[in-house]
Amino acid sequence: MGARKNTWIAYVFLAPALAVLAVLVFYPLVQGISYSFTDMSQYNMGSKFAPPSYEFIGFKNYSDLFASIFQPESVFRDVIVQTLIWTFTNVFFHFTLGLILALLLNRNIKGKGIYRMLLIVPWAVPSFIAAFSWTWMYNETYGVLNLVLQKLGIGAIPWLGDSFWAMFSVILVNVWLGVPFMMITLLGGMQSIPQSLYEAARVDGASAWRQFWTITLPLLKPVAATSTVLGVIWTFNLFNVIFLVTRGGPVRATEILVTYAYREAFLNWNFGMAATYGVVILSFLLAFTIIYQRMLKTGSNEGVYY
């Protein structure tokens, strides 16, 4: 870590990146938030031929959304529940499977390099390709999964045709995609734990199970905390998989906030409402991150970044 004191040169080095981010991220962010207080749509947003004619409508979008939660048939409420199921199921499996595989790879075994290479393949496959491949495997008539199930005497499963199985299927695709990253970051964390701790524990006669609970897990906490926070953020915002595999269907059963916001913006052309969804997403994530970091009292985001 550098030890140079407060120096102007640092700001010079930072300036270009910060300037670009200000223009391309923070300015649009503020604009996006401001749109959520308007009735902006494709038709009144303004163009070369017509000046913008959308109007400030205060908190109307928010109050409409909030009111819709309490209606008996609320798509918005379903979408929130589905977003939470989608996010936490994914991150739970990313973490547990990633942890198990990292523990296995952290042992002294033959062929470790080959296993690791094979296991990170899903990470290296472009996610849109993964989405296509799985959609093909899920095909009800010709898909390999149903062909195998039928060979085994189990009937075909309507992978993408039934609301439960559709959610199961998109989660499975994303679990497949996301486990390697978690495995690699946790493995990195494990390898930075000093071996001497385990040796001392063995001298004291601690079982492997006890070593895991008293050494590995506690020391893995900073890495695990950061990578699960990022996991939640990324999964919450993930668009590709659901859009390409189910398009939110059947009948919105796999719609999450991000895909729903996209639908509102670019299929219904209702930008004001879509921006409101965006603000809802951002608030969820900010609240989650703050609460989670308080709970773990890690405070910083040192260690693993993403």
Partner: peptide, 16 residues
């Protein structure tokens, strides 16, 4: 910035 939803940024960026 990791937290900013693409779904929110995409509208102003589209406009810009």
């Amino acid at each position: 910035t990791q937290m900013f939803p693409g779904a929110l940024l995409v509208i102003p960026l589209y406009k810009i």
